[in-house]
Computed example of a mutant assay.
Amino acid sequence: MLVIPLRPGAANAHQRFSLQLGENLIEFEVDFVSYLDAPAWSMNLIRDGSRLVSGAMLEPGSDVIQIYRTGIGQMVFTGADVTLDNLGVDNSLVWVPPVVEA
């Protein structure tokens, strides 16, 4: 399990970074979505130049990449509903590695 480092605030409204998740180097694109009625953050995941996840919304209490069947494990978002200023402060994005069957 690993907490993905997310940064709050207007200066971080468009975040780009890479993390090693198990055997996968994953590029993260995390963007604040301002045109919706409520604050929201969207996430894309890229591996080896191929997009694995496109537009996953960071909503508390969910595995935000479950429907994509990426094979990289789970990304569970926990805590409070998101705002521009509380991302990674009042909530967390946690990577859970896939279960390896023997």
Rank of each mutant, 00 (worst) to 15 (best):
A56K: 00
E27P: 00
G9V: 02
L45G: 12
M43Y: 00
L19E: 10
N12W: 00
Y68V: 00
V94D: 11
P97D: 11
M75C: 07
V89T: 14
F32Q: 00
F77G: 06
V3C: 10
S42L: 08
G9F: 01
G22K: 14
A40L: 03
Y35K: 10
L25S: 09
R16C: 07
N24K: 14
D81I: 09
R16G: 09
V53H: 04
G9K: 04
S34V: 01
M1Y: 12
P60C: 08
I65E: 04
E29N: 13
A80C: 14
V99R: 11
P97I: 10
N86M: 04
E59P: 02
W41K: 08
S92H: 15
Q74W: 12
G61Y: 03
L6P: 02
G9I: 01
L21G: 09
Q74Y: 14
P98S: 13
F17K: 02
L6H: 06
R51C: 02
Q20R: 13
L25Q: 06
Q74K: 15
Q20Y: 09
S50Q: 14
I72D: 03
P97L: 10
P5E: 04
N12R: 02
A56R: 02
G49P: 04
P8N: 09
V96E: 15
I46K: 07
E23T: 15
L6M: 11
S54Y: 06
R16Q: 08
V30T: 08
L52S: 15
I65W: 07
S42V: 04
S62P: 01
R7F: 04
F32G: 01
T78H: 14
D90T: 15
V99G: 09
L58I: 07
G88F: 04
L36M: 01
P39C: 05
P97N: 14
L2H: 05
W41G: 10
T83K: 12
T70H: 00
L58P: 03
Q15W: 00
V53Q: 02
A10T: 07
M75W: 00
E27D: 14
Y68F: 12
M1P: 06
P39T: 06
N44I: 11
A40Q: 04
L6W: 02
T70E: 02
S18F: 02
P8A: 14
N24I: 06
S54K: 08
V82S: 07
S34R: 02
E27S: 14
Y68K: 01
G22Q: 15
R16H: 10
P98A: 15
M75H: 05
F28P: 05
I26C: 07
H14V: 11
F77K: 05
L6F: 06
R16N: 10
V100K: 11
G71S: 15
V99M: 06
V99K: 08
E23P: 10
L45T: 11
A38S: 06
E29Y: 04
S42I: 03
I26E: 02
I65G: 05
G55C: 05
N44G: 11
V99H: 08
S18G: 11
V82K: 05
